[in-house]
């Protein structure tokens, strides 16, 4: 034991900060929330064990739960493909080798750094307000812009646009993926009489599949967890008419407005399971559409 400590002790000491962080800030709270999801807990009084009651209520009676699921799914299914397509488009333009490409890359990446912040959500609210910049611009052309944020018919789409605007990180990954496709495949395709669209669908897309898959999974998880923009723009409530009641916004309300920590924990676990299921579906389906160059056949 003494020898062992002498040999490896220093290693464990170096591991300690990480271990404390992981156990105290990640694993601990995760397990605590699992426990809390089976209780009623208002922070002030001790948690009271209620078994599956939180889950039963959620699935049987909670219409706002279903509404929040609907909003979140709609957002995921709209924003993820839109963002990936937009990111790929920009990456392909940048891949053509433009002058000062570094500047463009930085500029295009900027929204992704700012995008998750409160400040940008507030800015977005100003832009798309009833009398904001967007409607003022439309007004110049004699178009009377709708109430982008306060009309439940448009509010979700406005958030989708905000999400697509943060295309920087998938774009950079796509750009790296495009750069990795050997140029002589395109030359061979050129001689093989493949048109540009055919080259895109027959060569670029299949060879980019691993990168598309990676971006898809990452962006999907990101989209399920969207919070800041929806919270700020809806004033923290999911308004108008619950059209921005994202799952995370609902969860936050239950936890920190109504102090139903037990129920909020149950919601969090349901979200985790939903994300896990969709990630698993993505991985399962990837067998049929993702080709890996160095895979053993």
């Amino acid at each position: 034991m003494r020898d062992y400590l002498q040999k490896y002790g220093a290693g464990y000491v170096f591991l300690t900060p990480w271990a404390i962080g992981f156990l105290g800030l990640a694993l601990g709270p995760i397990l605590a929330s699992l426990y809390l999801s089976f209780t009623q807990y208002d922070i002030i009084n001790a948690p009271e064990w209620v078994g599956l009651e939180n889950y039963e209520y959620m699935f049987s009676f909670d219409t706002r739960f279903y509404k929040s699921l609907q909003v979140t799914f709609a957002f995921v299914f709209l924003s993820v493909p839109a963002k990936l397509i937009f990111a790929l488009g920009v990456a392909m333009v940048l891949d053509k080798g433009i002058r000062a490409i570094g500047i463009y890359r930085a500029l295009f990446y900027l929204p992704s750094i700012l995008g998750g912040s409160i400040a940008v959500a507030i800015l977005w609210r100003q832009l798309f307000n009833q009398d904001g910049v967007v409607n003022a611009a439309l007004g110049l052309f004699g178009i009377e812009g709708p109430y982008w944020l306060s009309d439940p018919r448009y509010s979700l789409y406005t958030l989708v646009v905000l999400a697509v605007w943060q295309f920087g990180s998938p774009m950079l990954i796509f750009l790296a993926g495009l750069r990795a496709i050997p140029q002589d495949l395109y030359e061979a395709a050129e001689i093989d009489a493949a048109s540009k669209p055919r080259q895109f669908f027959a060569i670029t897309l299949p060879l980019l599949a691993p990168v598309i898959f990676f971006n898809l999974v990452l962006q999907m998880i990101e989209a399920f967890k969207t919070f800041t923009g929806a919270f700020v723009i809806s004033g923290g409530t999911g308004a108008p008419l619950d059209s921005l009641l994202f799952f995370t916004v609902y969860l936050y309300n239950e936890a920190f407005s109504f102090f139903r920590m037990g129920y909020a924990s149950a919601l969090a676990w349901v979200l985790l399971i939903i994300i896990a299921i969709f990630t698993a579906i993505a991985f399962y389906s990837s067998r049929y559409w993702v080709h890996y160059e160095n895979e053993r056949g």
């Binding site: 050997p182 002589d184 495949l185 030359e187 061979a188 395709a189 001689i191 027959a202 060569i203 299949p206 060879l207 599949a209 080709h291 160059e293």
Partner: peptide
Amino acid sequence: LSMVFQSYALYPH
């Protein structure tokens, strides 16, 4: 015409 490349340039997928 047809061309054979040094790297073969076979479509890997």
